[in-house]
Write a protein that binds this DNA or RNA. Structure first.
Length: 414
RNA sequence: CGGGGCGUGGCUCAGUUUGGCUAGAGCGCUUGCUUUGGGAGCAAGAGGCCACAGGUUCAAGUCCUGUCGCCCCGACCA
């Protein structure tokens, strides 16, 4: 892709509205723009990152046996009244009345909707277990949206739901999800802590949170280095580890995932029952598994940046490499740059080509800001010796090599 | 929702305390010349209902009242 053909409005200064590091960098690098508090537009680069995260999630969900669905954001309030959660959730749920006078809400989450789907389509133990997931936009009228994508009123979540015959089945699915989550976060370049947590308004007994330690995180986790144990901090939390008695570290974290063993709360409330092998009518045993997809973008940046900008992990980067011809009026430079672009393109490597008529300094600054892993720098200095430069964004390492060998150097690092 | 801060060209801000003449700067944008490996220099331009509404006054970006928006601190959460 050519820079001048796409839309990358970078900023030199931090916008006034930005608070956290990730929010500032997302805005400065032209990945997102705010429409209003809690609602963001994804620009071309931001959307590419979002799609990369979704691709990873889909791969890991599919390989742990879940099937993708897409449920409506538009929902009848009556389903929420059946479980009583319309009161628990309260004003966080956006409600309105349609032209027929029907009470509608925008889904803040989907337990009721998916349970209702299972209720009307599953009636035998032979149809269980089933695990479904979706990647979808949720709406929550947050009391205080903040930190850009971290707490938005409209955001993208991956939510999965498991339906089992018995507790053993639930345990198995829960464990499989737990492992899949670890893979997803690791592929996203995140170091995470997992904590046993409160299930809050979701209900159920067991739940785990996936926490990303980050300076601007809203949650606090107590972490024991010796036991490698983390738990969510609460007012009445004690400052020392229950297992070894050691003093615990207090870490600010961003919650990026939360999984719950729901049990039968929703299946009982909505009548999602099945007949077991003995002809006995039983409620389906449920689990639910969430990942804050859009929030992950911010969490990844919080953990992967330096003074110059973002440092994208390979799998998330909007482009794997970038080509910086330092003088677009120089025929030799442009011929070489375009030749490399075509060669990489033909190898299936997604490359951003900075074809702007800008000075070298501007291109360097913007390239570092965007955080694309590899920068291929084509300028007079090295070209006179028939050499090109490859800069690795994360380490600032520079590989200077002959034109004939540079593609090999790139392939090694991609 | 309670407490605090802010709102002035696309972006960052000065000017508001103590009302006064054609509303400023830097960045960005347009044109020209010079430059050209880490956000260039000079020159000439374009771009503003000073958040909105009402009020006080001879006169309001500046004072008063109300509204809206954004940010920060608290309760909520992926």
């Amino acid at each position: 892709m050519f820079w001048t053909k796409t839309f990358i409005p970078t900023l030199k200064e931090n916008p006034q509205e930005a608070d956290s590091v990730s929010h500032k960098l997302l805005l400065r690098s032209g990945f997102v723009r705010m429409l209003m508090a809690g609602a963001y537009s994804y620009l071309p680069l931001g959307l590419k990152v979002l799609n990369n995260i979704q691709r990873i999630i889909r791969e890991e969900m599919n390989s742990c046996g879940a099937s993708e669905v897409l449920l409506p954001a538009l929902q009848p309030l009556e389903l929420w009244q059946k479980t009583g959660r319309d009161k628990d959730i309260g004003e966080v749920m956006i409600r309105f009345v349609d032209r027929r006078g029907r009470k509608i809400c925008l889904g803040p989450t989907h337990e009721e909707i998916i349970t209702d789907l299972i209720r009307s389509n599953v009636s035998s133990y032979r149809q269980l277990p089933v695990v479904l997931y979706q990647i979808q936009t949720k709406f929550r009228d947050e009391i205080r949206p903040r930190f850009g994508l971290i707490r938005a009123c409209e955001f993208i979540m991956k939510d999965a739901y498991s339906f089992d015959r018995d507790e053993q089945g639930l345990d198995k699915n829960y464990q499989a999800m737990f492992e899949a989550y670890k893979k997803i976060f690791s592929r996203c370049g995140l170091r995470i802590l997992t904590t046993e947590a409160d299930s809050g308004v979701m209900g159920g007994k067991v739940s785990h949170e996936f926490m990303v330690p980050a300076k601007d995180g809203e949650d606090v986790v107590l972490f024991c280095k010796r036991c490698n144990l983390a738990k969510t901090f609460k007012e009445d939390s004690t400052g020392s580890c229950k297992v070894c008695g050691q003093e615990q570290e207090k870490l600010n974290c961003i919650e990026v995932g939360h999984i719950f063993k729901l049990g039968t709360k929703y299946s009982v409330g909505l009548g999602a029952n099945f007949l077991d092998a003995h002809g006995k009518l039983l409620p389906v045993i449920m689990g639910c598994y969430g990942i804050g997809v859009s929030r992950l973008i911010s969490a990844v940046i919080e953990q992967n940046n330096d003074a110059d900008g973002i440092i994208w992990p390979k799998e998330l980067a909007p482009y794997r490499a970038m080509i910086l011809p330092l003088d677009v009026t120089d025929v030799k430079i442009m011929d070489l740059s375009l030749g490399l672009y075509k060669e990489l393109h033909d190898l299936g490597i997604d490359v951003l080509f900075d074809d702007r008529d800008e000075r070298a300094g501007v291109k360097f600054k913007d390239a570092d800001l965007l955080g694309i892993p590899l920068q291929l720098i084509i300028g007079k200095n090295s070209l006179k010796d028939n050499l090109v430069e490859l800069k690795v964004r994360s380490t600032k390492e520079k590989i200077i090599s002959p034109r004939a060998e540079i593609v090999q150097e790139i392939k090694k690092r991609i």
